[in-house]
Design a binder for these strands. Structure first.
Length: 633
DNA sequence: GCTTAGGCTTTG
């Protein structure tokens, strides 16, 4: 017999040349990925979005009953080679999906790193030509894609909302049916007090000695729902990367200072999940250089004294303000008016009658709500009522209800809007109508266009807000289009949903919009749209309770703020992670988590007292006004 | 052989 090894010649398709219904081989740089997770079917699933030098993106949905045959992607920027991936069109876009014989290689995307494929296949082709492709893609990515910053360490965590953590598993325990506890460390120490999930020590699986020795270095991560099954199966001592951990600041009822909690919420969006890293992973190697290997510890050979562990202590941003009563330093808030007012001690204020205005110098002992997103409410300036911001599910429900009635064909294409209508291809056969409002009898550029939609889903409405200036969800009656129930936003602009007050609004016919459309340059201001539609616009507002102290007394002052105090519009914060982060940072500066009294910075602010009479009861309340957080905070 | 999910407004 004569054996000859002949490497098959593979052709690779670039992402801008993909055709529906084909099976292709391709390379791509990972732009987004969900680490393999247990799907609701029989397989593991991993979703991977690639990009290549054609600048076209491709989202691939990969399934396999064997988790090892899914690509071993550890971070965004990794490079993959897929063989025999099927291309399909889905929602107007190309999509990749595993087909028979699917195989993948994954490479570190760092320029200059060794080109070593990660794969589960025993046999694969990989030669000089392939090596060259990977190196070229690395160079292209380095100059064309934005790089993510260095990974977060426990020593550097801020209540930063979401981050990925590379760590080692020290202990694990069942908490309840829908949550599971992972005790992990990364060789550094979190500078804040961290939350301990209440679990009996005997219920924690792990090396007892080590659990004890690392008790002040480990953090508890509570994982929920779909992540529980995977978390249960993790081996103690294994190295993990946990993606999109939520850090939040909270305080228990009996605690004086707040602590930090770590959660891995349910679901897989944003790539939330848990991946196991091999010991050869560079980040694991780095972790080991600053931490002894706990898996080497046993009862016979006690682990090294944790005190000897090199702990990267990084005290988070400290306030520059350390003044005291006698030598006051600068303040973290600035007063925007009433500069002639002198400071008044809290004790004096508490002993005075209302209403009055004061300038005070005090420390923020604590505040509510600790979950900052809960501080956002909707305020009606007409009836002075406050209400919670409805959640997306409410809106979805209302949209579903309105989609039952098909658009009225007689209400299409009028003098002031053009309409398009179609039926969805799915089994629901929904009828959707979009009415584009015209200006000067013409359609405007999408970014200047107001449209009305009938029969759309939440997702479809969202997509439209990305492209068009204003979206108004409507439904047909026999005579006219009308707004939906006012529990739904009557207008969406960008990320912001605008609501109307149910009590104070008297909706007018939709036709009233045509008067704004006829303006020379319609600005489509929410206030103006609300006005012509007879809607009393609800304003987004921050409502918080600050407990202030100054050594003479303590008082609770309310913050009622549209934008001035934080320099952040309350309307934008719910849909903007960056602003949420900024607000959290501001609160951390004004009231550092775990801060002792001496560490708290001084704030200067104006407060006014006012009387509230409720039947026989009479109470004095305090409200912060004309105060802004200093820009350098 | 079919399904799974179909990233992208996350917050227990």
């Amino acid at each position: 017999m004569h054996f000859q090894s002949v490497a098959p010649k593979y052709a690779y398709t670039s992402l801008n040349h993909l055709k529906d219904g084909t099976i292709v081989n391709l390379y791509g740089i990972v732009k987004f990925f969900k680490p393999p997770y247990v799907s609701k079917g029989t397989d593991y699933c991993s979703v991977v979005t690639l990009v290549d030098p054609s600048n076209v993106k491709l989202t691939c949905t990969l399934f396999s009953g064997n988790v090892d045959s899914l690509p071993k992607i550890y971070k965004v920027g990794d490079i993959v080679r897929f063989h025999r991936i099927k291309i399909r069109e889905y929602n107007g876009q190309m999509q990749g999906i595993t087909s028979v014989g699917f195989a993948s290689l994954t490479f570190d995307g760092t320029v200059g790193a060794p080109v070593v494929p990660r794969t589960s296949s025993k046999v694969y082709t990989f030669m000089d030509e392939e090596q060259k492709i990977v190196e070229e893609l690395r160079v292209w990515a380095a100059s064309n894609l934005s790089v993510c910053g260095p990974a977060a360490k426990l020593s550097g965590v801020q209540p930063m909302l979401f981050f990925d953590l590379t760590c080692q598993l020290v202990g694990k325990a069942k908490v309840d049916g829908s949550s599971f506890l992972l005790k992990v460390w990364d060789g550094t120490k979190c500078p804040y007090p961290t939350w301990k999930v209440p679990v009996e020590a005997r219920d924690v699986e792990g090396e007892k000695v080590l659990l004890h020795q690392l008790q002040n270095l480990m953090v508890d991560i509570l994982v929920y729902d779909n992540h529980v099954q995977l978390a249960k199966s993790l081996k103690i001592g294994s190295f993990l990367r946990i993606y999109s951990i939520h850090t939040k600041q909270a305080s228990a009822v009996d605690e004086d200072v707040s602590h930090i909690e770590f959660h891995l919420h349910g679901g897989t969006c944003y790539g939330r999940g848990i991946g196991v890293l091999p010991e050869s992973n560079p980040d694991v190697k780095e972790l080991k250089t600053c931490a002894p290997d706990p898996s080497s510890a046993s009862l016979d050979t006690p682990a090294r004294d944790p005190k000897l562990i090199r702990v990267i202590e990084g005290r988070p941003h400290q306030c520059q303000v350390q003044g005291d009563d006698h030598f006051p330093g600068p303040s973290d808030t600035i007063l925007t008016d009433h500069q002639d007012l002198n400071n008044t001690e809290l004790k004096t204020i508490l002993n005075s009658t209302a209403p009055q205005q004061y300038r005070i110098r005090a420390k923020l002992r604590t505040y509510k709500p600790q979950k900052l997103y809960q501080s956002i409410k909707l305020h009606c300036s007409k009836c002075n009522s406050l209400q919670e911001v409805p959640d997306g599910d409410d809106f979805d429900f209302i949209l579903q209800g309105s989609a039952i009635t098909a658009p009225n064909a007689e209400l299409q294409n009028t003098s002031w809007y053009d309409s398009v209508m179609w039926t969805t291809q799915d089994e629901k056969q929904r009828k959707i109508a979009i009415h584009f409002v015209k200006h000067d009898e013409m359609l405007q550029q999408p970014e200047d266009t107001l449209l009305m939609i009938e029969g759309g889903t939440l997702k479809e409405v969202w997509k439209l807000t990305k492209i068009f200036k204003c979206v108004i969800p409507v439904r047909s009656t026999e005579e006219d289009l009308e707004l939906l129930d006012l529990s739904a936003p009557f207008l969406l602009q960008g990320n912001i949903k605008y609501y109307g007050c149910k009590q104070c609004s008297t909706p007018k016919p939709i036709k009233s919009l045509s008067s704004i459309a006829a303006e020379q340059r319609p600005s489509w201001e929410p206030t103006e749209i609300a006005q012509v539609l007879g809607i009393e616009l609800l304003q987004y507002v921050f409502i918080m309770k600050f407990t202030l102290i100054d050594g003479t007394g303590a008082l609770n002052a309310y913050l009622f703020d549209y934008e001035k105090f934080f320099q952040i519009p309350a309307s934008e914060i719910l849909s903007n992670n960056f602003l949420q982060h900024k607000m959290q940072m501001t609160m951390n500066t004004l009231c550092p988590p775990g801060g002792k009294l001496d560490d708290l910075p001084w704030l200067e602010c104006f407060i006014k007292s006012y009387n509230v009479r409720d039947g026989m009861k009479h109470q004095v309340y305090y409200q912060i006004f004309d105060t802004t957080v200093a820009e350098d905070v």
